[in-house]
Design a protein around this nucleic acid. Structure first.
Lengths: 147, 147
DNA sequence: AACAAAACATAGCAAGTTAATATGTTTGCA
DNA sequence: TGCAAACATATTAACTTGCTATGTTTTGTT
């Protein structure tokens, strides 16, 4: 499943907020876009979706920025992607007016189990786990450098 | 997960071939497009993908048409959708050159488990099961009519 | 009070994808 | 030989994606 740039940016941006969660203060979009190496203007659009989904809080004005709306342990990858990737959380609609039985069968045997599997997989990983994994990978990279 | 029209058409068309599997003869695209109520020309493009994936065999010329390449029990929804919906079987590529550790963590904790969940869900349902479900739904519809 | 830094809003655009149509050409049975 | 089918290719309109541009509001700092 190939996720869109927006989806990937959302996940990555949230890890940056998570890494700052203890420190307390807000992080600016400019900082995040520089760290990730992506467009600041585009990232703003991603944050507007994250905010609408109440996953982040914003502080306007000078010294402002963004913060997680709750602990990284209570935000899942599904929360983030559902806020951004519409097609992922939307379900497949009936398509064959002449054969309602076929639409029903498709929904029951394929579409619904698929949606459940996606939701279970993505909601089993928290932002805290993702961030911890990234920090571990980073330590391993540094180790490799010294060998 | 909202599937594309092509994906839905592919699943639906395959059920029509499955329902004819015992009879033996080929089924034409025209027949299938009429039964499903969709464009014949568009359906041809779907069949070109199904054929490339070796899920169907074709017989050219008059009295020709399409047949399943193997038993409905040995064709899964994943086989069909992987042949048609590229984005589904493609995996999410690394996106953050500056943070390889983050790309690694995303792949390990999110992308790969998601792909596994999708593949397991879709490959657990065979074309035979889908067709049986559609026929059962159809019988129930007819029952309702007489109550 | 003025300034600067930030979020927030809206519009636009180029490239790509999707869903579909149009127009043939080949193939092979009757 | 004629016709019915698969097969091939090009075109099109609408939509989506990824991204840029141009502001406006808000608010802390000087």
């Amino acid at each position: 499943m190939k996720l869109s740039a927006k989806g990937r940016y959302g996940l990555a941006a949230m890890t940056q907020l998570a890494m700052n969660y203890h420190a307390g203060g807000p992080v600016t979009i400019i900082k995040i876009s520089e760290r990730l190496g992506i467009s600041k203007i585009y990232l703003e659009q991603v944050f507007s979706l994250l905010k609408r989904a109440k996953l982040v809080r914003s502080i306007k004005g000078s010294q402002g920025g963004y913060q997680l709306a709750r602990e990284p342990e209570r935000i899942t990858a599904y929360d983030i992607l559902a806020a951004i990737e519409l097609a992922l959380s939307e379900t497949t609609a009936p398509a064959f007016d002449k054969l309602p039985a076929l639409d029903e069968a498709l929904a029951k045997t394929i579409y619904e189990p698929l949606d459940t599997a996606i939701r279970e997989s993505l909601s089993s990983t928290t932002l805290a786990e993702l961030t911890a994994a990234a920090e571990r990978e980073n330590r391993e990279e540094v180790m490799m450098f010294y060998i």
